[in-house]
Design a protein around this nucleic acid. Structure first.
Length: 672
RNA sequence: GCCGGAAUAGCUCAGCUGGUAGAGCAACGCAUUCGUAAUGCGUGGGUCGUCGGUUCGAAUCCGAUUUCCGGCUCCA
């Protein structure tokens, strides 16, 4: 599950047994969808069961067009590679693909040739014809087509009460539920985009096929617009902007997926942390600090080790112990076994903060009067992500959660949840991430993967549901999306380009208090079990920052901008004056730069524009004379043009304190 | 982890079929002192990711490896 900060299981902050993966995979797909690459829309393209047979009635005209393009692709492909074995070729949210098995691995040049052949097929204006067969006939037909490799299995997926249909265009015939455009000429605007590996039926134990991605639109203009959109997305990529603006580094010598925050990026992070810390302090949270590493036993109790050892950095064993084992002739495999069975101890880089916070809670007695206890920490955790999954700031191996754990009585649960949800909403809105959806993950009553009593579950779900409803969220309740220890609410955020990211999460947990035998004394003088809430409004600073960079395309609001104002002296003579002014402003806490290059004003403006500094203040002789600056703001069209220094300071102060969102600079990319 | 692609100066990239590297921007220097998106001239900068192989000769061909990119899979 990628929810909180989407680093694996950040939503399952508490760890535990694997969950139903179905829904997760779906969201994951959307999650990481990069606009340059159409992904299968699982509603249409899902690999599960018979979903590849969407049925005639369900295909929209656009899907029909794209699905037809997929058939045209297959037609062309078989002309060039008659030995190709076809799997499926569904439309997707942004285009279509066809999965094929082929010894020759396809390259960009091959795609061009295939595309050319596709144009020929279109020109031939072949008619798409549907016909139905019996199962036996279908089998025979597939064999005669030489397509038994995957198609027979697909045929077997079609239930008995459903018609078995084929579509034929020209020489190409394919097992297919439809639907299609009437003639190939209807498919005018298409493009093959790339080829990628994809497992048959999405199962890594199945053969890996080559997936040819393409897209198609009703008109050439729409296709062009889509391609332009891809280009825009490329420019907005946080890895690209991060490099241009020097916000972070991921260094080969430091390690994969390990983020180095630069001074500029550090400002971003610091501001975000300060902001959230301030809010937490107002809301009765206590800030705590815990180490990055802890004994294996702690994580045995929590359930992380050894069950999830594959997604953790390997344990650290004490030097002396290691030496003793070596002299005993203990091999690596043996060591691994002994670590697992507990006969050798060690330390683990923490994959989650909760065990540490739980130990803090357990470190002193609690009564119902002292609850809730709210322990917050920007806690850095480490998880062994598969190398192929790492991605800029959005999927890394070490990241810092804006984590907190609330220990409360069952009665307090509802109010605490509401507080968490409110905070998350406020944070997202402050940053202009207002296009989020709220997903309420509930347990699947038919599953036995959950812990805790039915009564507790009902209370927890009712509390979560009530909180979400009271706060007026439009939410979607999804069965089977709960964590194993309790229901949860995830905030799925959409960035400016329509990509969805799962960030914040609020989860209710009855499991870990039990595993760690937590207690508080109730009014009845009896021991009671507290309920835990795991929550992280950002998820992780890394992912959140990555999303934020893309959301703003690097044009940050003033309060976040690494450099808030740049002073542009008209000539060298004015540089000392500008420096003085800058020093004054810095003393007031503003982040101010001075462009001391021997350039003309135009060049200085251009530089500041390129570096996305939100505000520029021109300092010329006239300004010095008048005690004013000429303000040029990239993000605030209504900024005062010639404020006095005092007015400028006040304006800037308001700009920072209000955390006002930028007004999109429409001149983006005005440069040649 | 799997399939495919890529790696050349700080950045973006060129370098055909092997003959010991090039542009723009950036940096630096000099001149210019300029009014809202690029002033001119000059200089420095790369063991072509790393290791090995083929060859008289490798950025270029082959192998391995590392990292990145796109998917797939995974994601407590």
């Amino acid at each position: 599950m990628r929810t909180a900060a989407g680093h694996k299981g950040e939503s399952e902050i508490a760890g535990g047994p694997p969950r139903n993966q179905r829904g997760s995979r779906r969201s994951r797909r959307r999650d990481s969808r990069h606009p340059s690459v159409p992904r299968p829309d699982s509603k249409v393209a899902g690999d599960r069961g018979r979903s590849y047979h969407p049925g005639m009635a369900t295909m929209s005209p656009l899907e029909e067009l794209r699905h037809s393009a997929a058939h045209i692709l297959a037609t062309a492909l078989l002309r060039l590679y008659p030995e190709a074995k076809l799997d499926i070729g569904p439309p997707t949210r942004e285009g279509f693909y066809y999965d094929v098995e082929l010894d020759h691995s396809l390259h960009a040049e091959d795609l061009e040739r295939i595309e050319e052949e596709m144009r020929r097929v279109v020109k031939e204006n072949q008619k798409f014809e549907r016909f139905e067969t019996t199962r036996a006939e279908a089998e025979e037909l597939l064999r005669s087509l030489g397509q038994e490799r995957f198609k027979l299995g697909r045929l077997a997926d079609i239930p008995d009460d459903e018609a078995i249909s084929f579509y034929r265009n020209g020489e190409f015939t394919d097992l297919c539920a439809g639907t299609h455009v009437p003639y190939t000429k209807k498919v005018k605007a298409f493009k093959l985009l790339q080829v990628a590996g994809a497992y048959h039926r999405g199962d890594e134990n199945q053969p890996q096929l080559q997936r040819i991605y393409g897209t198609a639109f009703p008109t050439r203009e729409e296709l062009e617009a889509y391609l332009a959109h891809l280009e825009e997305a490329r420019q907005r990529d946080h890895r690209r902007i991060g490099k241009d603006l020097h916000l972070f580094q991921i260094d080969e010598e430091v390690g994969q997926g390990l983020v180095l925050w630069t001074p500029e990026g550090g400002i971003l992070r610091q501001e975000l942390q300060d902001y959230i810390r301030g809010r937490l302090n107002q809301q009765g949270y206590a800030q705590v600090f815990t180490p990055h590493i802890g004994k294996l036993g702690l994580f045995r109790t929590s359930g992380h080790f050894p069950f999830y050892k594959d997604s953790q950095f390997p344990p650290v064993v004490e030097g002396e112990e290691l030496h003793r084992l070596a002299t005993e002739g203990c091999g690596c495999a043996e060591l691994a076994n002994r670590l697992e069975d507990g006969s050798v101890d060690g330390y683990l880089l923490k994959p989650m903060n909760c065990p540490m916070h739980i130990r803090l809670y357990a470190g002193r007695p609690h009564s119902y009067r002292s609850l809730p206890v709210r322990l917050a920490e920007f806690g850095t955790v480490y998880r062994w992500e598969q190398s192929g999954e790492l991605n800029g700031l959005t999927r890394v191996r070490g990241f810092t959660q804006d984590d907190a754990h609330i220990f409360c009585t069952p009665d307090q649960l509802g109010g605490e949840i509401a507080g968490c949800l409110r905070l998350t909403r406020e944070i997202l809105e402050t940053l202009g991430l207002d296009q989020y959806r709220v997903r309420l993950g509930l347990r699947d009553p038919d599953s036995d993967k959950y812990v805790g009593s039915a009564e507790n579950w009902e209370r927890a779900e009712a509390a979560l549901t009530a909180a979400v409803e009271d706060l007026g969220f439009a939410y979607s309740a999804e069965t089977g999306e709960a964590a194993f220890y309790g229901p949860k609410v995830d905030f799925v955020v959409e960035d400016a380009l329509g990509r969805e990211w799962q960030l914040g999460t609020v989860q209710v947990d009855y499991n870990l208090p039990e595993r760690f035998d937590l207690a508080y004394t109730g009014a009845d003088n009896q021991k009671h079990r507290p309920v835990m809430i795991h929550r992280a409004p950002f998820g992780s600073l890394e992912r959140f920052t990555g999303v934020l960079i893309e959301h703003f395309a690097g044009n940050f609001p003033t309060w976040l901008a690494p450099e808030q104002v740049r002073l542009l002296p008209m000539n060298d003579e004015l540089v000392p004056f500008a420096e003085e002014l800058a020093a004054d402003l810095r003393a007031e806490g503003f982040r101010v730069g001075v462009d001391g290059h021997a350039d003309k004003l135009g060049a200085k403006i251009r530089r500041a524009e390129t570096e996305k500094v939100p505000h520029m203040a021109v300092i010329g002789a006239r300004e010095r004379e008048a005690g004013r600056v000429s303000l040029r703001s990239r993000i605030r069209p209504d900024a005062p043009e010639q404020p006095t220094l005092e007015e400028f300071r006040a304006w800037l102060r308001g700009e920072v304190d209000s955390k006002r969102l930028p007004v999109r600079p429409e001149a983006e990319g005005k440069k040649a």
